[in-house]
Amino acid sequence: MSAPSIKGGGVASYPRLRKVKRDDRITGFLMVSPAVVFTLAMIIFPIGYAVFLSVTKWAPGSSAIHFVGLNNFGRMLSDHVFWSSFRVTMILFVACLLIETIIGIYLGIFLSKDIPGQKVLQAVILIPSIIASVAIGMMWIQILDPTLGFANYLLSVVGLKPLAWLANPDTVLQSLIIIDVWQWSPFMALIITGGMRTLPSEPFEAAVIDGASKWQIFRFVTLPLLRPVVMVAVLLRSVDLVRFFDTVYIMTQGGPNNASMTLNVYSYLQGFNYMDMSYGSAIMLFLLLLVMLISLVITKLRGRTS
């Protein structure tokens, strides 16, 4: 690091005239514009359209528009399936995120150590995260099958009673959490291993020289340095978890008895099975607000470190 560094970064730090800085800003603007235009057309506009749908009564094939005000939102308040979907969504979000972050940090640090065979293991455990959720769903339907599944065979080997897994309202959420943790912890680990490799070695050497214990190094050196990377992983994972859809829709479609119905699945069923696109949109807007709130909290936590 021999270059005389001007700290702070950004445009202001370059030793250039104001005009050049303005040209620089135009270049920056041009660089973001394709992404911005795409976002406006494919994301912002549809969200606006969904807001419009949520205050109207939409019927397939009809072009007549009936404004119904906030009826669709009022209906949510008295819809017990909506409330149970909300509960299920939050349970899955909190449980999966917590377990996946802990396993992700453990795996991420473990995999960044130079132990022979580490690259092979990294590839192997990444496999659940990179396989399509449809394949995940199909393989676990077979494994968790109450009569011939491998899971119940394992239970019988260790002398436990067989479970109905996905077919029982009392065990369906636990089954989905197990599958999600199995599927996504390695993804968290991949991001965290990547972060571990970019960490400077000096703080670790200094900590060793100062006689810090393994736990102290982890708690006071590794974890704070890793925090930005962990927060990115947490943010990416939270955003997907609140919108829990694929494995539920593939394996249970919200059943049995709505016990695994998430908000995302419920609104899809409302929109595309019962063709009530207006009510579906209203539920989705609620879910969007929920996701934004959670992301905002995490982004604030992330910003605090820099």
């Binding site: 976002t39 494919m42 506009f45 995302n264 949109s281 989705m284 969007l288």
Partner: peptide, 19 residues
């Protein structure tokens, strides 16, 4: 703004796109 794309639930876009 770009994060909004990752945050919004897919069904939210799917319904307008479909219509």
């Amino acid at each position: 703004l770009t994060l909004l794309a990752r945050m919004a639930p897919g069904v939210l876009f799917l319904i307008p796109w479909y219509i």
